[in-house]
Amino acid sequence: MGQGVLLTAGADIDFMIHGVFSYELFGQTLWITTTHICVLIVLLIITGFCIAANRVIKRASDVPGTFQNIVELVVEMLDNMIGGVMGKFSPQFRNYIGTIFIFILVSNISGLFGLRAPTADYGVTLALGLITFTLIHFNKFRYKKAKGVLAELCDPWPFWAPINIIGYIAVPVSLSLRLFANVLSGTVMMALIYGLLAKFAIVWPAALHVYFDLFSGAIQTYVFCMLTMTYIADACTTE
């Protein structure tokens, strides 16, 4: 009875990350987990899509076929979204934002295909948040120079700087926790339904999949990219 209440109610509930095999590196035991494998699968799917898209676009025709249409639709949608928020800074960040958009979207949706969504691991989302953090501050130094950064740090008064620093650190933490907790809550809900209601879960969980995996995943992808773009554009803008 050393287990939590939920885990004793049904033995089939399973939404944890599992280690697959471990290895030693510099005296540390490191684990290859299910998250790594799911990220690998997601990356392979995206790479396959990219190779196919590249092949189609190289022999693009004036009257697009189905696949060329899809590729053009995706690129156009991303361009519009990024251009609408970042304005004149959009050409430099189009690659990065487009990449994380497609990666997070496919990761979130991969719950639908029986994988454990990679974004339901805090390691993945924290890495994404830290990339955003680095980009924000790199661009701040690039556009506002050290003087502008210092002026912003001591915004109302110089002794306000520690609070501003806490505010800077809160950005990647809240970004990554939001994405992580949303995807995790979907994963947990689906695991509970399949575990506790296994006898009754016949067809109707499909509707919940539409909400938790497709809708919630797409909205959170959009929110993550939107906030990243807003923060970066804010860091680039000089008065």
Binding site: G4, V5, L7, A181, L184, I219, Q220, V223
Partner: peptide, 19 residues
């Protein structure tokens, strides 16, 4: 989706306590 964040922090605390 942004307003949801505070509720999700509560969910995270609950998850940490339980699991």
């Amino acid at each position: 989706a942004v307003a949801e964040t505070t509720g999700l922090y509560g969910l995270l605390i609950a998850m940490l306590l339980l699991f």
